[in-house]
């Protein structure tokens, strides 16, 4: 497991010439990008730009049509599934779960990659579950039923599950969807904290201002291609937003945080 630590520190997660088609439809083509460690990277782009697909390709739950994703120079798809799951954790878009799973049981799933298929969980697994819940601020929630929690709390449970996987890379698809303002801030603060701790955090987001406020790096997709990538402050520009979304934008400075914030005009305004 020391390998995972060094990978996380090195943060060498890269996509090389990544393409993906569903049947005849090209979803992504020729994606080249680096996802730095100790940072939160935001995946931005209009609906249908391929954000979710890219995230799933990076998580290796989708098979690319061509190209590869490498971690510290190793092709992810050449790794054993379990080993891969010890390096990368993935939090999918929120699915409605109406199975009466307890919070602790949900987080415990993160320990699956560390157990032989038929072995029961160990005391160590249970300790890690407790620790992960504490990290996301849900101490004492272990016995609660997942479907009794608020949307923000549930998202934290999923993140805790990813933490229990003890990976250096954390991938999240729309982690702030359907959350209220304070829950959004809570989740993103949490992700920033993880990045500060050395993790590579990649989140697909659709809110430009949340991205601007919380992400160190940004990758902007449009039509299945990377149209811009780099440090958030220098990459996200009114010109880029206009060309990608077709909406005029003005960049301001948020007096509360000092981070950039964008104000948008109507679609047809000049």
């Amino acid at each position: 497991m020391s390998a995972a630590g060094s990978i996380a520190a090195a943060g060498e997660l890269r996509a090389h010439g990544l393409s993906y088609s569903a049947g005849q439809r090209v979803i992504l083509s020729g994606i080249e990008c680096a996802l730095p460690g100790s940072a939160v990277t935001g995946l931005l782009g209009p609906n249908g730009a391929g954000k979710s697909s890219l995230l799933r390709l990076i998580a290796a739950v989708l098979k690319p049509t061509s190209g590869q994703v490498s971690l510290a120079g190793t092709d992810l798809r050449s790794m054993k599934r379990k080993v891969r799951a010890q390096h990368l954790a993935f939090v999918d878009q929120q699915v409605d779960v109406d199975v009466p799973l307890s919070v602790a049981d949900a987080v415990l799933l993160g320990r699956l990659p560390y157990r032989p298929a038929y072995a029961p969980e160990t005391t160590r697994d249970e300790l890690i579950v407790q620790r992960s819940l504490a990290q996301v601020g849900l101490e004492g929630f272990g016995a609660r039923r997942l479907d009794s929690l608020s949307g923000g709390e549930r998202q934290r449970v999923h993140i805790a599950r990813a933490l229990a996987q003890e990976t250096g890379v954390l991938l999240l698809d729309e982690p702030t969807n359907h959350l209220d303002l304070s829950a959004q801030a809570g989740v993103l603060d949490l992700l920033r904290g993880l990045a500060l701790g050395g993790s590579t955090v990649v989140a697909a987001l659709h809110d430009i201002n949340l991205t601007a406020a919380y992400c160190d790096h940004v990758i902007v997709l449009a039509g299945g291609r990377v149209v811009a990538s780099g440090e958030t402050a220098s990459t996200l520009t009114p010109g880029l937003i206009r060309s990608v979304y077709g909406v005029p934008a003005v960049r301001l400075d948020n007096p509360l945080t000092g981070r950039p914030v964008f104000a948008f005009g109507g679609r047809d305004q000049r």
Binding site: V61, V97, L112, R115
Partner: peptide, 22 residues
Amino acid sequence: LSGGLLDGFSFGDNAAGALGLN
């Protein structure tokens, strides 16, 4: 005996795949 593996399906196929399940 596969109960533990089935649990991995709780949050969808993608989540299951990301947990190292085939």
